[in-house]
Amino acid sequence: MDVDVIVKSPFAASEVDVLPASAIILGTTENLGYMSGALKDFFDRCYYPCLEGCQGMRYALYIRAGNDGTGTKRSVEAITTGLRWRKVQEPLICRGPWSEDFVAECHALGALMASGLDAGIF
């Protein structure tokens, strides 16, 4: 595969990282039925700088949910819809008590994104 991967926390990432990217994987915890403050901060800083330059950005989302994750999913999708980003699959919601399976599911999400980009599908 010929895909470069850059991993950054939402606090460290900015439009400088997003604008040249071919795709982005967003991750968040479920906090009171909403996205984490870190992801919200990322969107607050990057929304307008990325609004025009990132239309059509392919993205994926994973949510670590203590409950059902639907409020978190809805809040992120409202912002990504405004940005006109395209999701490559339905969000991965890791529900309930911690499980090592969550790690494998997130790895599979990353592999799907990388393979889709490498094959020109996304």
Rank of each mutant, 00 (worst) to 15 (best):
T80C: 09
A38T: 03
F42Q: 01
R45L: 04
V18T: 11
T80H: 08
G37W: 07
Q89M: 13
I121F: 04
V3R: 08
Y48N: 06
D68P: 02
P49Q: 03
D68A: 08
F102R: 13
E105H: 12
L117Y: 05
R74T: 14
G69M: 06
V88N: 00
D44K: 07
G66T: 08
T29M: 02
A38H: 06
D44M: 06
N67Q: 14
G116R: 14
Y34W: 09
G53Y: 02
A114I: 03
P20Y: 06
P10K: 05
G66F: 08
E77Q: 15
L109S: 09
G69C: 09
G69L: 07
G53D: 02
E52M: 08
L51A: 08
Y47C: 03
A65T: 02
I6A: 15
F43T: 07
E30H: 11
I25D: 00
N31L: 07
T70I: 12
P91W: 05
G69V: 07
A65I: 03
F11M: 10
K8A: 12
G33P: 07
A108P: 11
C54I: 00
A38D: 11
V7A: 14
G53L: 01
T72G: 02
R95Q: 15
G69Q: 09
A23G: 04
A108E: 15
R84D: 08
L117S: 01
T70A: 11
E77T: 09
F42L: 11
L117T: 03
A13M: 10
R45M: 05
I63L: 04
I25P: 00
T72R: 10
V7G: 08
F11T: 07
P10L: 04
V5G: 04
V103W: 06
Q89N: 12
R74M: 15
K73W: 12
R95M: 14
G116I: 08
G69S: 09
I79D: 02
R74N: 13
E30T: 03
A38F: 04
T70M: 13
T80G: 06
I24W: 01
I6K: 15
S14D: 14
A13S: 05
V18A: 10
D101R: 15
D68G: 12
T72S: 11
V16W: 01
M35C: 01
E52P: 00
V5L: 14
F11W: 08
R58M: 02
E15Q: 11
L117W: 05
I25Q: 03
L92A: 10
I24D: 00
L26N: 02
E100M: 12
V3I: 14
E77H: 13
Y47A: 00
I63V: 15
S14M: 04
R64V: 01
R86M: 08
T29K: 02
S115E: 14
Y34H: 13
C106V: 15
L19N: 03
R74L: 14
N31E: 14
P91A: 15
K87N: 13
E52S: 10
I79M: 09
V76C: 07
T81H: 09
D101F: 07
G37M: 06
V88A: 11
